[in-house]
Write a protein that binds this DNA or RNA. Structure first.
Lengths: 396, 396
DNA sequence: CAGACTTTCTCCACTCCCAGGACAAAGGCG
DNA sequence: CGCCTTTGTCCTGGGAGTGGAGAAAGTCTG
């Protein structure tokens, strides 16, 4: 099948494409309500979009009291690939042009196996989705990696937990393999984009999205746009000092947040507690599985294990301390908590909230919601699809 | 004299006005080099600006190898007023449309005397500058206040150190009194704008500007624009916890940065040291003046007083800890240190640098200059003039 | 069921904008 | 003094966009 080749020729067309993406099939009149263009101009631009094939006619809409309108929609055959590479697993999903997930697969995989092995996996997952009839090909792909990225080139830079990826031309290579445009970003930024597009942050211009998984990172959205910093490492809050002279961290410093609370740290703390006999519940699970993960702590806490609850609360407090500082500095309109440890749920959220509301000034926290992400494991892949669609739906 | 009434009619004119403001008198050809417009279009827009009176002819320029060009410049009679209200003093300056300071006056004044008293002072200073022949009237004024501001309305909100100012319609009132447009912002944001316009940050898109005076604040510039946060309190870093369970702060929490290091805290520490006999130098100064200020500590340190140097170093370390966190989070391209305590100079700077470079990750600090502000006490008033000129040189 | 009213969409004429070439003016250079 | 370069103005043709007129296709009311 012929894949998407056209791009919007001007800002008006780009605007229309994004409206169709976010609002679904619409009539010209509905579009006219949301853009400031004369009817004739609008008709011309829509006509051109129809000519490119990006947009197709979609039957008649319900009447709004007069003549029924002819709907248009984005080509239903367009397909985007969303890839979210985590530290320990890979998510791949196919979406249509409206960024609805048509298929989603997940595979455990250690990112430290290096880009070649991971790429092989990603491509086989993409092929599997294609083979199941969800896509005949991909018009674009977004990919998130767990580390800083030089965004314009799509290349990871000095990623601490991804040895072997430094400087690997992810964008270039994946684009070659898939035969379509690719954009690369930090996984946390994509989670923020996902929650902004389809989750809790739909109406907020400035917000933070804290992802607590194997590590800890923070997506920063300023004026509706992801902020990436000068070298692409903005939001790298895992190595902010949370405990003066605290635990040694892999980065060489003492007391980093990540050393005290993250999926990895939590699993280690739980194992310690089990071995020291502080929690029968955890000891039982350690016995059963041979090892403990954050999910075990979540389950133990749900079963009422006091030690697990304490671990979660303490971690939430540490995280809350750091977030409180960020809230004072950044004065966001919303804080979203997401990532693997959202299984810890409201115990974690309550601890974070308590600490933030206690430590930040009332003006900054007065009307500040701190909530769990709405999309769970799909936030990353939706964000990835959003990333590439934003790119493709912009003037060339 | 008739004051400025015209505003640019479109984005092109706005662009040209800003080029003339930042680049001084220029020929049409020079302007053409910097904007993407055809010669004819450019000539038309310049002609229209000449008609409004905002721009005037300014003789012939030197030849660039051919026919000499006719320069144009911003009306040399335009005057902006820059007002910087600090916690303990007020700065007022007059600039021309190119934001060059033509006159600058400073008066000690406690902001806690309330808006009415301060306004009286500001207006009398503005009148004094006018009386000295520097201005026949003001075409616009920018004003900075030491607390959060609801920017669109120009009203302080819940300012901790400015009781009596909460909700006072600063913009409205000053506009009434001066008879010209007024914009209001946080003093720290204006310092950042000043350093961006005429100081060390001229070429940097994303940077932080930390102002250490009576309190501590931080201006945030994202993509060349000041970021103010959801409620206008972004950059309020004085109440980030720097020392767990540290000193009690006026805000009710423990260990706030401002409680451990700021002009006020430094003066108190110095007085303690003097009274406890830890520094003969400081004791002598206390004896002489009856009280100590940050400037005394600076002087004592310059004279080699070990206790003063220690105080400065410790404060710098605390500040550096907080800045290190912000650098990890924000990944700026530059950090500017300014405010009253810049008198502490390189001792302070060295301590901050040491701490930041030690605590933040190499990717964020690798090419991160941390420097003192270039403009000193004029940063605020230049920023204020810049603020109002940005406003007036934008399409209405 | 007919006619009035609404809404949607197309067509068209007129205006305005603007790019870019031609040309005049003004200076440098040998 | 002639030629080249640069600057600035004038003009024309093309393209884009606005807004009115009107057709098409409904709903609603008596």
């Amino acid at each position: 099948m012929r894949r998407m080749t056209a791009r919007p020729a001007n800002a008006h067309q780009a605007r229309l494409l994004k409206l169709l993406r976010d609002g679904g099939p619409s009539s010209r009149a509905q579009l006219g309500d949301r853009v400031d263009l004369s009817r004739s101009k609008l008709a011309v631009e829509v006509e051109r979009l129809l000519e490119t094939g990006l947009v197709v006619a979609d039957g008649l809409a319900a009447s709004r009291g007069g003549r029924r309108s002819h709907n248009v929609r984005l080509d239903p055959n367009l397909r985007f690939l969303g890839v979210d590479i985590g530290a320990t697993s890979v998510d791949v999903a196919v979406t249509n042009a409206e960024l609805e997930i048509l298929g989603h697969v997940n595979q455990p995989m250690d990112v430290r196996e290096g880009p070649v092995a991971v790429f092989e996996q990603v491509l086989s997952m993409a092929a599997k989705l294609r083979a199941s009839g969800l896509a005949e090909g991909y018009d674009g792909a977004g990919i998130g990696v767990p580390g800083p990225v030089r965004f314009p080139e799509g290349v990871p830079v000095a990623p601490p937990i991804m040895p072997g990826w430094d400087g690997f031309p992810v964008r270039e290579a994946l684009s070659q393999e898939l035969g379509c445009p690719v954009m690369v970003d930090n996984d946390v930024n994509l989670m923020a984009l996902g929650e902004q597009h389809a989750g809790v942050a739909r109406t907020v211009a400035d917000f933070l999205c804290v992802k607590i998984g194997t590590g800890i990172g923070c997506g920063i959205v300023v004026g509706g746009e992801v902020y990436r910093g000068t070298t692409g490492s903005a939001g790298d809050i895992g190595h902010i000092q949370a405990v003066p002279d605290g635990r040694p961290c892999a980065c060489g410093n003492l007391g980093c947040l990540e050393a005290h609370f993250s999926g990895a740290a939590l699993a280690r703390d739980a194992a310690d507690a089990a071995q020291q006999g502080r929690s029968a519940e955890l000891a039982g699970r350690l016995e059963a599985n041979g090892r403990l993960s954050a999910a075990d702590v979540a389950a133990a806490a749900a079963a009422g294990d006091a030690t697990s609850l304490d671990l979660i609360r303490e971690g939430g407090t540490r995280t809350g301390q750091v977030i409180a500082g960020l809230v004072s500095f950044f004065n966001p309109g919303l804080v979203v908590i997401g990532g693997g440890v959202t299984g810890l749920g409201h115990t974690l959220l309550a601890a974070i909230r308590t600490q933030v509301y206690r430590q930040s000034l009332p003006l900054a926290t007065g009307n500040l919601p701190i909530v769990l992400g709405e999309l769970g494991p799909t936030a990353g892949v939706i964000g990835a699809a959003r990333l590439i669609s934003d790119h493709l739906f912009s003037p060339a």
